[in-house]
Amino acid sequence: MTTPEDREREFNLREAELQAKERELKLREMETEIYQEQKHQEVDIEPQMYRTQKHNPSDSSIQKFGKKIVKFAKFAGFVVGGIAIIKIGFFVGMWITYLIMTGIIAAVGYQIFLRDD
C-alpha cells in the first residue's frame, strides 16, 4: 500500500523529471537556433552596403549669378560665332559666284570670238 507521502514523493520526482526534460528540450531548441544563425552568418559574409551621397554645400547667390553669366556668355559667343560664319560664308560664296560667272562669260566669249570654224 502506498502512503500519501510516497505518492507526493513520486509526484515530485516525476515533476522534477518533466522539468529536466523540458529544460533539455529548450536547450536543444536554443542550440538549433544558434546553429541556424551561425549558418546564415557564414552565408552572408559580405556586409550590407548602403548607398552614400556626397554632401554638396548649397551655392551662394554670387556663385549662382556667376554660373548664369557664364551660360549667357556661352550663348552670346555661339550666336556671334554663328553670325560670323554666315557672313564669311556669304563673302566666300559671293567670290565663288563671281569666279563662276566670270568663267561662264569667258567660255561664252571664247565660243563666240576665238573658236576656229
Rank of each mutant, 00 (worst) to 15 (best):
D6A: 15
D6V: 12
R7M: 10
R9V: 04
R9D: 06
E10R: 13
N12E: 14
L13Q: 10
R14S: 03
E15A: 13
E17C: 01
E17Q: 12
L18M: 08
K21L: 15
E22A: 12
R23D: 07
L25V: 06
R28V: 04
T32Y: 09
Y35E: 14
Q36L: 14
E37I: 12
Q41K: 11
E42A: 12
E42I: 06
D44F: 06
I45W: 08
Q48E: 15
M49A: 07
M49L: 14
M49I: 14
R51V: 11
R51M: 07
R51H: 09
T52I: 13
T52P: 00
H55N: 02
P57C: 03
S58I: 06
S58V: 08
S58F: 01
D59A: 14
D59K: 15
S61E: 14
Q63Y: 01
F65L: 15
F65P: 00
G66P: 00
K68D: 06
I69Y: 04
I69T: 05
F72W: 14
A73N: 13
K74F: 05
V80R: 07
G82N: 08
I83M: 12
A84D: 00
A84K: 06
A84L: 15
I88D: 03
F90D: 04
F91R: 05
F91C: 03
G93F: 03
T97M: 12
Y98K: 13
Y98W: 03
L99T: 10
I100M: 09
I104R: 02
I105K: 10
I105Y: 08
A106K: 09
G109F: 06
Y110R: 12
Q111Y: 07
R115K: 14
D117Y: 11
